[in-house]
Computed example of a mutant assay.
Amino acid sequence: MLASVLSAVVAATVLSGCTATALQSQYQNGDNKGYISGTGVTEVKPADRKDPVTFSGKTTEGSTFSSSAHRGDVIVVNFWYAQCPPCRLEAKELQKIAAKYEPQGVDFIGINTRDDQPSAVSFDKTFGVTYPSILDADRGKAQLAFSGVYRPNSTPTTVILDRKGRVAARIEGPVTAQPSTVETLIDSVLAEASS
């Protein structure tokens, strides 16, 4: 009887390890889409925000973007690459949001995680993206700067930094599914900065 009970416990333990998470299910799906999708919004209260995120890198235009030089502005950071279907889907919507908020002192910067300069520039021309992107495929330094609690877990991910350079919000997945949410989060960070 004891052997039967032990066998049942061992079998239950082994089988419990077979339950697939959402991430494992995407991997095991076998569709070879080449990216991990994500959804969800994380908003961080000012009192709970960590240290400022400091990153820099060469942009698609050949200049250097440094988050330190933009301290005092709200910064919207979008992680993307050209062959990512949700990135292609959200590009025009993100550009509309950028055009709306840039006059209000909101800086938009992309962080391209996989492409070379010609591919990234071609993407921008195709989708009408006018804000710069850091080319981060070679070293991943800009991505590494976000490797704390609010790192980009999927592509695309959009992160909003407050005027002190701290993560105020993270949107996983394309903003096309939630453009009003993105705008509400930007408005909230702008309002707290001016009060």
Rank of each mutant, 00 (worst) to 15 (best):
D51P: 01
Y81T: 15
N78A: 00
D51T: 04
S63A: 05
F65P: 12
N78E: 05
F65W: 09
S67F: 01
F65I: 07
V76P: 15
K50G: 11
T59F: 03
A47W: 15
D51C: 00
T59H: 01
S63H: 11
E61A: 08
A47M: 06
I75F: 07
Q83M: 15
K58Q: 14
V53R: 01
I75Q: 03
G62L: 10
H70M: 10
G57D: 03
A69F: 08
V74R: 08
I75C: 03
R49W: 15
E61M: 10
D51F: 01
Y81N: 07
K45Q: 13
K50F: 15
I75H: 08
W80F: 02
E61R: 15
Y81I: 12
R49Q: 08
S56P: 09
E61G: 10
A69C: 06
Q83C: 14
V53D: 02
F79L: 06
A47H: 14
A82C: 06
K58G: 11
A69Y: 04
S68Q: 09
S56I: 14
F55G: 00
P46V: 04
D48N: 12
T64I: 12
F55K: 04
A69H: 08
D48Q: 11
D48I: 14
G62H: 10
V77I: 15
D48G: 09
V76Q: 09
N78I: 05
R49N: 09
G72H: 02
K50P: 14
G57E: 06
H70W: 10
F55R: 03
K45G: 10
T60D: 00
A47G: 08
T60L: 01
T64E: 02
V76N: 05
S68E: 08
V53M: 00
Q83W: 14
D73Y: 12
S67D: 01
T64R: 13
S63N: 07
I75N: 01
K58C: 06
V74M: 04
K50H: 13
V44R: 09
I75L: 03
K45M: 10
P52N: 01
T54W: 04
W80C: 00
T60P: 02
G62P: 10
D51H: 07
T60M: 01
R49L: 10
D51N: 06
T54L: 00
K45A: 13
D51K: 11
V44K: 10
S63K: 13
T59E: 00
D73A: 05
Y81F: 11
S67P: 03
F55Q: 04
N78R: 11
W80D: 03
S68P: 09
T60Y: 06
V77L: 01
S67L: 03
D73G: 07
V74F: 02
G62I: 15
E61H: 09
W80I: 05
D48C: 08
K50Q: 13
W80Q: 00
D48Y: 12
S66M: 07
F55W: 03
I75R: 10
K50E: 11
